[in-house]
Amino acid sequence: MFTMSRGWEKFFYVGCFITQGSSYISAYTYGLMHRLHHAHTDKAGDPHSPHNEENAFLLMWLTRNNYKDLYTGKSTADDKYKKNLPQWTRFDKIAHSGWARLGWVMVYIVIYALLANAWWQWLVLPFTIAMGSLQGIIVNWWAHKFGYENFNLTDTSKNILPVDLIFWGEAYHNNHHRHPNRPNNATRWFEWDMGYQSMRVLDHFKVIKICR
């Protein structure tokens, strides 16, 4: 969808670590897993298809295991899926470590201790810790189960929200599967891809270059 310099790539690696926190995942490994999802959608080689596991929470665990196997090298993928993926191995070893995740959990606990003014607010803490996994299961499970279709495809991808103000364009999963390399996931007049609009801003300031 776009390219960027190695310097900006490292800048956004650090940005992902700060914003994802305890949910941090390797951009390289996630990109590889995402490409495998498109290549084998709803088939045995799909790393996170609800057709491989109907239960949403078991699918989340299956996705975690498939991701971990790709990250550690226990499972492999053809070289064609690895081309032009962002990679910073030394940084991943630190940001992806259990100690880093534990550190973020400690940070969250301190923030809750400072800001929570009722006991029930602490019930949100587990969701804060697992936010990345929860967002992933919404897109990877819900978007292959429920929603509307703009394109009649051979897979089960759906658009889960007509106006996406939450997932920055990822809600238009059916559109994305029809045009996987297109930066703008919105196709109909009422659809809005905030992720693409952000790309346009970054492209304007020459932080990235959108592939047209």
Rank of each mutant, 00 (worst) to 15 (best):
Y30L: 10
H179W: 13
V124G: 06
W104P: 01
T19D: 05
R64A: 13
K43Q: 12
W119P: 12
P86K: 00
L36I: 13
D69H: 08
L134K: 07
P50G: 02
M106E: 11
H51Q: 12
H204A: 10
H48E: 09
L161I: 06
G147R: 02
P162S: 01
D69L: 08
N174L: 02
E191Y: 01
E149L: 12
H40I: 05
G147V: 09
P50Q: 00
A171M: 06
Y30F: 15
R35M: 11
A39Y: 04
W61I: 08
N52W: 15
I129C: 02
L62A: 04
L165G: 15
I109W: 09
I160T: 03
N185L: 02
V107H: 06
H173A: 03
E54M: 08
K206A: 08
L36D: 03
N152G: 06
N150E: 14
A95V: 07
D42G: 05
H51V: 11
Y81K: 01
H177K: 04
R200I: 02
D92V: 10
Q121C: 06
Y81F: 15
H51W: 15
I109F: 14
G15C: 14
I111D: 07
V14I: 13
S26T: 06
L114A: 07
T89M: 03
H177D: 03
G195H: 02
L85V: 04
Y30G: 08
R101C: 12
C211Q: 06
Q121W: 10
E149F: 04
T3G: 03
F205V: 15
H51G: 11
S49D: 08
W189E: 04
S5G: 08
G21Y: 00
Y30T: 08
H38D: 03
W120M: 02
H177N: 05
G98N: 15
P162I: 02
P180C: 11
H96N: 13
V14D: 02
K145V: 09
S157C: 09
Y148E: 09
Q135S: 14
W104G: 00
A27C: 12
A27V: 07
K83W: 10
D164Q: 01
M1I: 07
C211W: 12
G73A: 02
A77M: 12
Y67C: 00
H37W: 02
E170M: 04
F57S: 07
E191F: 00
M106L: 12
V14P: 03
L114M: 13
T29M: 08
M106C: 14
D193Q: 04
S198K: 08
L32I: 13
N84K: 05
P86M: 00
H96Q: 15
H37N: 07
Q197L: 12
L70Y: 11
W99T: 07
K206V: 03
W8N: 14
M4S: 10
V124E: 11
Q121H: 10
L62S: 14
R35E: 06
Y71T: 06
K43S: 14
